[in-house]
Amino acid sequence: MKNKLLLLFIISIFTIIFIIFYKGLKNTNVYTPDIKINKEVPSFTSELFYSNEVVKSKEIFDLDKFYLLNIWSSWCAPCRQEHSLLMDLMETKKIKIIGVNYKDTKKNAESFLSELGNPFYQIIFDKEGVTAIEWGAYGVPESFLIYDRKILKKYIGPLDEQSIKEIKFLIK
């Protein structure tokens, strides 16, 4: 009797393990951080691209306005891809695009912008990639939609038509 109970117990444990592994198979094993919505914009200080001024994040983002923060770099191929979409978005004038120039040289970044146009209202020069970390980013490109100093949405990887449409819808 005692033996049978033990057997039953062990079998049920293994069955549970089986089910968990079975379910686990369907989950992806690649981790992407949770997107925390309505989180306050991180507070940081960083250098501006053109003026070399050191600014606080509060000075960049006004309350009650829409911003798109875009992390980009001249050496990143997908950034080149999404650039025209950013230009397009900038022309709507409803949103200010803030660029974070990630681990770049000024020379390369400047020629990138003169070639493809400059959609950015302001550019933060993030030579060491530290500002990007403040934003919880881990690669280029990444974009954040911001309203009222709160993050509404986060886009990992290059923006596409779909996401631009979404942004336009949200800022209306």
Binding site: K103, E128, G129, V130, A132, I133
Partner: peptide
Amino acid sequence: EFANSLKV
């Protein structure tokens, strides 16, 4: 790149 920035 990410790891290097993190180290900094």
